[in-house]
Design a binder for these strands. Structure first.
Lengths: 225, 225
DNA sequence: GTCTATAACCGGATAGAC
DNA sequence: GTCTATCCGGTTATAGAC
C-alpha cells in the first residue's frame, strides 16, 4: 500500500476488461492485491515475485488470488499496465492544467516534473514498472508496450513543440533526450530517501534544471575543454 | 560473451580471493561462466537467472558450475563485483589519462562519458549490475556496496572539485546530481540500439551536455515560466 | 469469496562416475 | 574438470470445503 500523491486529484486511468468480481467489496480486494503485487515486484523483480509474498502483503492467501486474476502472468501484466497508466495520467493532467498561454518549454518542464513526482509518490508502482521493463515475456511486452509507446509519443510531442518554438535545441536526438530524462527519473526511487539533503520538490527542480540548463556555470578555468 | 570496449586497454580490476582453479584452463572457464551469468542476469534479473540457463550460455552443465563457484549466490556476487569494478576501472583510467592541466570540469565530463561508454560496451555486465541493485539479499548488498560506495566517492570528488573551481554550481545537491546522471546512463542499455538516430559517441555527448549545459536555448517564448 | 490441501513441476545443490 | 542422477524445498495452479 503506497502513499498516494498528495494534493492533486489524478485523472482516473481506464482499466481493461475485468473478468470476475462485480461487487465493490471484491473490487477493493482486487485493487489491494494489485497494489501488493506492485510492491512485491518492485522488491523482487519479475521472476522473484511469488504469489505467497503478494498474498501476505495483501492480507490473503496465495490460492485466493486466482479468484481475482486468471494467472500470475495476468496479475503482473495488470500491475504494469496500471503503473504506466498512473504516470501517463498524472503527467497529462499536470500539463493540461497549465494555462493555454503556457510556453512549450513550460509544458515540457511540467511533464518532466510530473513524471518524477509520480515516481516518488507511487514508488511501488513506479519501481515495479521500471523493474518489469525488459524482464517480462515477449508476448506480454508486446501488449504493454502499446501503452508505453503512447506515453512516449505524448512526451515526444511536448519535446517537439519546444524544439519547434526554438526553446530547446532542434538538433538534438529527441527520442534519446526523452529516454535519458526518463532513465534519470526512473532510477530515483532506488536511491532517494526523504531524509536526505534534498526534498522531493528540490529533486524535481534539479532534474528539470539538468535537462534544460545543466549545472555548469559560465565560468571556465584556464585548461582546454 | 559481450564485446569488449574497443580501443583503450582497461586497468585490470583486482578480483577477490579465488577458491579453486589454479590452472589457466580453469581460469578461462570460470571467466566464461562469469560472463554468461552476467548476460543471463541482465536478461532475467536476480531471481530469474537459473544455473541451467547460465550453464547453457557458457557451454557447460549446471552441476559443473559448482566446481568454480561455491554457490549460485557466490557466482552472482562476483558478477556484480566484476561489473562495478569494470566501470570504476574504466572511468578512473580515462580520467587519469587526461593531462595534468585538464580542468575539473573536463575531468568530470570525461568521467560521465566513460561511465556511459562502459554501459554501452559491456552491456551484459552493465545491465546485470543495475538489475542486481536493489534485488540482491541484504548481506550480499552490504559487501558489494563497499565497492559501489568507493566508485560513488570517486565521482563525488570529481564533482566537488568542479564545484570548488566554480565550474559547476556549488549550491547543487552533488549526491543527487551524481545519482541522476548515473541513472540516465544506466537506463541506456535498456533502450539504445546502434541502428538508431544517434551513435554511442553522440549519445555520450548528449548526456554530458544535458548534465552540464542542458538542451534549452537562450530563447524564451512570451509565456511565463 | 476465501480458505486448505495437494498435484505437478522446477531449480539449487550434492554425490559419484568418468 | 565435467557429466549424469538424484534429493529436497519451494512455486504455480487447481479442487473442494466452508
Amino acid at each position: 500500500m503506497s502513499a498516494r500523491l498528495n494534493p492533486r486529484p489524478l485523472a482516473r486511468v481506464p482499466e481493461p476488461a475485468v473478468p470476475h468480481s462485480r461487487t465493490p467489496r471484491a473490487e477493493r480486494k482486487k485493487l489491494r492485491i494489485l497494489d501488493a503485487a506492485a510492491e512485491v515486484v518492485a522488491r523482487r523483480g519479475y521472476a522473484g515475485a511469488t504469489l505467497a509474498e503478494i498474498a501476505a502483503e495483501a492480507g490473503t492467501q496465495a490460492g485466493s488470488i486466482y479468484y481475482h486474476f486468471e494467472s500470475r502472468e495476468a496479475l503482473i501484466e495488470e500491475v504494469m499496465r496500471h503503473g504506466v497508466g498512473l504516470s501517463f495520467a498524472h503527467t497529462r493532467a499536470c500539463v493540461e492544467r497549465l494555462p493555454r498561454s503556457a510556453s512549450p518549454r513550460t509544458r515540457l518542464e511540467t511533464a518532466i516534473r510530473a513524471h518524477l513526482e509520480m515516481m516518488l509518490a507511487e514508488s511501488g508502482n513506479a519501481r515495479a514498472t521500471s523493474r518489469l521493463t525488459g524482464q517480462i515475456p515477449p508476448e506480454m511486452w508486446q501488449r504493454v508496450n502499446a501503452v508505453m509507446r503512447a506515453y512516449g509519443a505524448y512526451l515526444d510531442r511536448l519535446i517537439a513543440a519546444a524544439a519547434a518554438a526554438g526553446e530547446i535545441d532542434p538538433a538534438i536526438d529527441r527520442s534519446a533526450f526523452r529516454m535519458l530524462v526518463i532513465g534519470a527519473a526512473n532510477w530515483v526511487p532506488e536511491w532517494f530517501r526523504p531524509n536526505g539533503r534534498s526534498s522531493p520538490g528540490q529533486l524535481c527542480d534539479l532534474l528539470v534544471r539538468m535537462a534544460m540548463e545543466g549545472v555548469a556555470t559560465r565560468r571556465r578555468s584556464r585548461a582546454a575543454a
